[in-house]
Simulated assay, not measured.
Amino acid sequence: MTKFPLVVALGALAAAGAVVVLTERFYRELEVRLAGAILNVITTSGVYVAPDRESVYFGLSGATPFGLRMTPECSSAFLLLPLLVVTMAMLYFRPANAKRLFFSLGISAVVVVLVNQLRILTIVGLVHWLGPDEGYYWGHTLLGSMVSVFGGAVSLVLFVWLATRKPKAVA
Score class of each variant (00 low, 15 high):
residue 82 P to V: 12
residue 89 A to L: 13
residue 149 V to L: 07
residue 18 A to V: 14
residue 56 V to C: 09
residue 169 A to V: 07
residue 67 G to S: 11
residue 111 V to C: 07
residue 87 T to K: 04
residue 102 F to C: 01
residue 121 L to P: 01
residue 131 G to V: 02
residue 135 G to R: 09
residue 156 L to E: 03
residue 29 E to Y: 11
residue 150 F to Y: 06
residue 86 V to W: 00
residue 95 P to C: 08
residue 5 P to V: 09
residue 26 F to D: 03
residue 168 K to T: 10
residue 78 F to M: 08
residue 141 T to E: 02
residue 161 W to T: 11
residue 74 C to D: 05
residue 48 Y to E: 13
residue 79 L to Q: 14
residue 118 L to A: 15
residue 157 V to F: 09
residue 110 V to L: 09
residue 38 I to W: 01
residue 69 R to K: 15
residue 75 S to G: 03
residue 115 V to Y: 04
residue 94 R to T: 06
residue 90 M to W: 10
residue 140 H to I: 10
residue 111 V to Y: 02
residue 9 A to Q: 06
residue 15 A to R: 00
residue 67 G to Q: 09
residue 161 W to R: 15
residue 98 A to E: 07
residue 99 K to M: 15
residue 83 L to S: 06
residue 87 T to P: 07
residue 98 A to Y: 02
residue 69 R to H: 15
residue 81 L to G: 00
residue 17 G to F: 01
residue 32 V to H: 06
residue 110 V to T: 01
residue 29 E to S: 14
residue 16 A to R: 04
residue 142 L to E: 04
residue 90 M to D: 01
residue 63 A to P: 04
residue 79 L to G: 15
residue 101 L to V: 12
residue 97 N to T: 03
residue 85 V to K: 00
residue 89 A to R: 06
residue 137 Y to G: 12
residue 85 V to I: 15
residue 43 T to D: 10
residue 35 A to N: 15
residue 152 G to E: 07
residue 57 Y to V: 14
residue 131 G to C: 14
residue 82 P to R: 06
residue 37 A to V: 09
residue 135 G to V: 14
residue 126 L to G: 05
residue 137 Y to R: 15
residue 166 K to P: 03
residue 1 M to Q: 03
residue 155 S to T: 08
residue 39 L to Q: 14
residue 52 D to I: 13
residue 121 L to D: 12
residue 105 L to V: 01
residue 119 R to A: 00
residue 156 L to W: 06
residue 142 L to N: 01
residue 88 M to W: 09
residue 59 G to D: 00
residue 156 L to H: 03
residue 100 R to G: 10
residue 130 L to H: 11
residue 80 L to V: 11
residue 168 K to N: 09
residue 153 A to N: 06
residue 132 P to D: 13
residue 65 P to S: 03
residue 144 G to E: 01
residue 131 G to L: 12
residue 144 G to A: 07
residue 79 L to M: 15
residue 61 S to F: 12
residue 66 F to E: 14
residue 17 G to R: 08
residue 167 P to N: 15
residue 111 V to F: 01
residue 158 L to H: 00
residue 124 V to C: 08
residue 74 C to W: 11
residue 13 L to W: 11
residue 161 W to G: 02
residue 24 E to L: 03
residue 26 F to Y: 01
residue 171 A to F: 15
residue 41 V to R: 02
residue 146 M to Q: 05
residue 41 V to E: 03
residue 110 V to A: 05
residue 106 G to N: 10
residue 24 E to M: 06
residue 95 P to V: 12
residue 90 M to L: 07
residue 3 K to M: 10
residue 26 F to C: 00
residue 129 W to V: 09
residue 57 Y to R: 11
residue 7 V to S: 12
residue 154 V to F: 03
residue 100 R to S: 12
residue 70 M to Q: 01
residue 154 V to T: 05
residue 53 R to I: 03
residue 86 V to N: 02
residue 87 T to H: 03
residue 131 G to P: 14
residue 71 T to F: 04
residue 149 V to G: 02
residue 17 G to D: 04
residue 32 V to Y: 13
residue 84 L to I: 13
residue 12 A to W: 05
